[in-house]
Write a protein that binds this DNA or RNA. Structure first.
Length: 365
DNA sequence: CATCCGTGGGA
DNA sequence: TTCCCAAGGAT
């Protein structure tokens, strides 16, 4: 496998490619908040946010996040609920819990300085091969590869590499390709330029080859194969889960919320109580009431019919939630993970998007 | 290695 | 509607 790209490597004018790529990036790069300076912490935060997430989505989150937590020390000392609240809606919430954990590690073990050594930085929670290379090259100018989906797509075309980029093992092939071609005098602009090119020009479908600054270096373009690359196999279908949720109010205007488990889906976020509901019970109303009694020792009177329906699509499954309103009768034991909160207090807690939507529907009903 | 882990946008 | 994503990492 490595043989093919090494053969093609000999067809590439490496210095010409580096020059054309970097010149284009320096002239055409987008103005983005994380490009204001090369503070390793800001680069780090941006790279974590940008994992599997679009630039336009990240921008407002990044600005808010670095305003709330301007330094490693600020984030290390912050309350986790506040950190999750700043991430609310971005998805993949373990990213930010790992980031805070890693920042604490940097504070305690490395004196608050992000390590410059590839082995050390790669040990940090949430910092994999891509993120390690990105931080090292962008913030510190270390000539390490930063191979993401963009880079695999661009290189598969430039070097005509017919590896399936959906396979984890393929990443190493592209890392070796980047090591062979990276501009050692400017790895920061080189790596960013590859990703910028992938985002703006060398796009997945219908790449803009006529606007491409490196098309003369591109084997796939010369062979007219740019639309056939990269090779990427498809993923499987998602599972479906039927749920019933309850928005329960007390007579004095408080609502029952609870914290999700520390591991797994939407870990440590808050939600309205919900349970699986395969519609095999006599009624969802009774099913919910029994669940609330068993799980929270809550005596509740739930309405007969759902007032809303929510579909929550994840990357690997789908929730279909029927949403019921109800009243809590009597008292409830409040703990660290179960609370009765007013509408105003609710704003301090981070909820999954589906539960934000059901609250909105509840207020509009 | 396969699966898990979010979300909103676009073809 | 359905599918595929978008600057991946942990287990």
């Amino acid at each position: 496998m490595a043989k093919i790209f090494i053969d093609n490597l000999e067809k590439i004018d490496i210095e010409g490619f580096q020059q054309d790529l970097i010149n284009w990036f320096q002239a055409e790069q987008r103005t983005l908040p994380w490009r204001e300076n090369k503070d390793p912490y800001r680069v780090w935060v941006s790279e974590i946010m940008l994992q599997q997430t679009r630039v336009d989505t990240v921008i407002p989150y990044f600005n808010n996040f670095v305003e709330q937590f301007p330094t490693i020390n600020d984030l290390a000392e912050a309350d986790e609920d506040k950190v999750l609240k700043a991430w609310e809606g971005l998805g993949y919430y373990s990213r930010v819990r790992n980031l805070q954990s890693a920042v604490k590690e940097v504070k305690e073990v490395y004196g608050g300085i992000v390590p410059k050594d590839p082995k050390e930085i790669a040990k940090l929670k949430g910092v994999g091969p891509y993120t390690a290379g990105a931080i090292l090259s962008i913030a510190y100018g270390v000539p390490e590869p930063a191979v993401d989906g963009n880079v695999m797509r661009v290189f598969s075309r430039i070097l005509s590499i017919w590896e399936d980029i959906a396979k984890p093992a393929s990443r190493k092939v592209f890392e070796e390709a980047v090591r062979a071609i990276i501009a050692k005098d400017n790895p920061s602009d080189f790596n960013q330029a590859l990703m910028e090119l992938g985002a703006l020009i060398c796009t997945p479908t219908s790449p803009s080859c006529l606007l491409c600054p490196v098309r003369e270096h591109c084997i796939a373009f010369h062979e007219g194969k740019e639309r056939e690359l990269p090779i990427k196999t498809k993923n499987k279908k998602t599972k479906k889960v039927q749920l019933a949720a309850a928005i329960l109010s007390t007579d004095d205007g408080r609502y029952l919320i609870r914290k999700r488990p520390a591991k797994g889906l939407l870990a440590n976020l808050w939600e309205f109580p919900q349970c699986e509901d395969d519609h095999t019970f006599t009624s969802t109303k009774r099913h919910l009431q029994e669940y609330l009694l068993k799980e929270h020792a809550a005596m509740a009177e739930v309405e007969n019919a759902a007032f809303g329906k929510i579909e929550h699509v994840f990357s690997h499954l789908v929730w279909n939630i029927d949403v019921y309103a109800g009243r809590i009768e009597g008292e409830i034991d409040q703990t660290d993970t179960v609370k009765l909160v007013t509408e105003e207090e609710m704003k301090e807690f981070a909820f999954p998007v589906s539960h934000q939507k059901m609250w909105k529907q509840y207020k509009e009903k």
